[in-house]
């Protein structure tokens, strides 16, 4: 699902965020990406979502070299990727329902399809009774789950999560990772960037480690 071939990323400031990274993530595989802050986790995720372009090397998503994608193709690449952020990135002036419906509205689905899919996604994250509320009135954990519902509502083959448990207590964090597990079990590839090592230790999933822009551990058996 994701392949990195000898990927370098140098920012205009001269900072080299990634230095020759290789990685591969299968469909339906779930993996963690760890490393200190500044190790290149965010850059790696941005390259996948085409928020940045690699300076060298190839980033291949679902068989397509997205590093070379034309600008007008970017939206269509992003529709295959559900993204979850530490700061949730919800629209403050829309209800929970409308926030979750956003990818479907953009995709041009009919209202009936939108209704049933949004309710299914909200049901999945346990927020079906809150669809008419505004995000601001929800707790941090609930907002994060709204973000997850939005990420999975159009059934993308790939989920990216950037510090999804950053502000949550261990119990809520575990709940959210349970959700990711369930998605991976139905064939969704899940890549979770985090520096919460305690959390990773409790889960038995492949763990990739970045240090100073190099992949020092791909999490695969030698």
């Amino acid at each position: 699902m994701i392949e990195f071939h000898n990927v370098f990323k140098r920012y205009e400031t001269g900072h080299e965020a990634l230095k020759g990274v290789n990685l591969a993530l299968d469909s339906g595989e779930m993996a963690f990406l760890t490393g200190h802050s500044g190790a290149g986790k965010s850059t790696l995720l941005k390259l996948i979502a085409v928020m940045e372009r690699p300076t060298r090397g190839q980033v291949i998503i679902d068989g397509a070299n997205v590093g070379r994608a034309k600008n007008r193709q970017i939206p269509h690449i992003r529709r295959k990727i559900g993204m979850i952020f530490q700061d949730h990135r919800l629209l403050a002036d829309r209800t929970v329902f409308d926030n979750v419906a956003l990818p479907l509205v953009i995709g041009g689905l009919s209202q009936r399809d939108i209704n049933s899919r949004v309710r299914a996604a909200l049901d999945k994250v346990g927020l079906l009774n809150k669809e008419k509320m505004m995000p601001i009135t929800l707790s941090g954990g609930e907002q994060q789950r709204v973000g997850i519902a939005r990420a999975v509502v159009n059934k993308p083959p790939l989920l990216l999560a950037d510090e999804p448990t950053g502000n949550l207590d261990p119990e809520l964090s575990a709940e959210i990772l349970k959700l990711f597990e369930q998605f991976s079990q139905v064939g969704v590839s899940v890549l979770v960037a985090t520096h919460d090592l305690a959390l990773i230790a409790r889960m038995h999933y492949r763990t990739m480690t970045l240090r100073d822009g190099r992949m020092i551990n791909t999490g695969l058996e030698e």
Binding site: M1, D26, S27, G28, R79, K80, P103, L104, V105, G107, G108, L109, S110, Q111, D113, R117, N154, K155, P156, P157, V186, G187, V188
Partner: peptide
């Protein structure tokens, strides 16, 4: 590779209507 999930697709007419 498992093929469980694909991105949402909608038919032409439902797209047009939407």
């Amino acid at each position: 590779s498992r093929t469980g999930a694909t991105a949402s697709q909608a038919g032409f007419f439902s797209r047009l209507g939407m």
